[in-house]
């Protein structure tokens, strides 16, 4: 069966944050300064990793991107339009910027998988047929075949539930897809499946993807840009390779570079002429093989 690309995206969607601050519980003693002068631009079509320790403000940040939270101060522009303006169309924004929450399976509520995925498109005003067509395309794209459509979402496995939830957002044809810790609570195989699925979605739909995580190993293999947050502040915003050169600073923030980076560093310290900037297993393998061959010759 041939899959149709579900999105008819324009390569224009750009989100820009200027001096965004956010404070939870403003006037109590428990006020938390969750975002501190955040300035970032998310251009169309990028694959971005958003990394930070627990409580660093990742979830808070991504909820600003589709207007679920309003900045305490600062501005957010989407395609040049200020999303805090009174007459801004929030529904449109939520359609364009799809946000998959942490543990998204907790939001399932319908009696069968297909109806649950239809919830988004129906809210956007699509007819039953259109919504179902979109839902089916999204479900197939996340790897759930037709046999699952009529099942109760509560009877599925954890990984399958999560796919349903992702499809629920995907069915709205977003131009930006944000996933908040999509691998939390999954086993290694499930993690890899979800991450590969996200990469596939990115390639097939050509959308912007923001992947939130606290694991560098998860992200290093996939993204082209990494944003590191710590205590609500942006610490690094660069290509993965460049970010991982700051191993010490990352460790001070309770993060770590990918494990291969450590192995390559250790090898280099023992005198092996390997590439210490390797960040994926594949690159590391290549570099080590080259060094071994070089030694033999």
């Amino acid at each position: 069966m041939k899959k149709e690309p579900a999105g008819n995206h324009k390569e224009t969607m750009e989100i820009r944050l200027e001096h965004v601050n956010y404070i939870y519980g403003g006037d109590t003693e428990l006020a938390v300064h969750a975002l501190d002068d955040v300035n970032i631009t998310l251009p169309a079509g990028q694959f971005i990793g958003l990394i930070g320790h627990t409580g660093s403000g990742k979830s808070t940040l991504v909820q600003h991107l589709n207007g679920l939270l309003k900045p305490t101060s600062g501005r957010i522009y989407c395609d040049g339009e200020d999303i805090c303006a009174k007459d801004y169309n929030m529904k449109k924004l939520r359609q364009k910027v799809g946000l998959v929450f942490q543990y998204p399976e907790h939001q399932l509520f319908e009696a069968d998988v297909l109806s649950d995925v239809c919830f988004g498109p129906k809210n956007l005003g699509f007819s039953k047929e259109e919504a179902e067509a979109k839902a089916k395309a999204a479900l197939l794209q996340v790897g759930l075949s037709e046999e699952y459509f009529d099942q109760s979402p509560f009877d599925l496995s954890g990984g399958q539930k999560r796919r349903v939830a992702i499809a629920g957002v995907l069915a709205m044809d977003p131009e930006v897809l944000i996933l908040d810790e999509p691998t939390a609570g999954l086993d290694p195989k499930g993690r890899e499946e979800i991450l590969n699925l996200i990469r596939k979605l990115k390639e097939e739909r050509g959308i912007t993807v923001v992947l939130v995580s606290h694991s560098m190993d998860d992200v290093a293999n996939y993204v082209e840009r990494i944003i590191v947050v710590n205590h609500g502040r942006i610490m690094f915003d660069d290509a993965p390779r460049k970010v991982f050169t700051h191993v010490e600073e990352l460790e001070n923030m309770g993060l770590a570079a990918p494990q291969v980076t450590y192995i390559m560093k250790a090898l280099a310290e023992k005198g092996a002429a390997v590439d210490t900037s390797a960040i994926t297993l594949e690159e590391a393998k290549q570099s080590i093989l080259e060094w071994v061959k070089g030694n033999k010759a």
Partner: peptide, 13 residues
């Protein structure tokens, strides 16, 4: 609060 936000992200009103 969390579920409400999650459904709002799916266009719920």
């Amino acid at each position: 609060d969390k579920i409400m936000k999650a459904q709002m992200a799916r266009g719920a009103d």
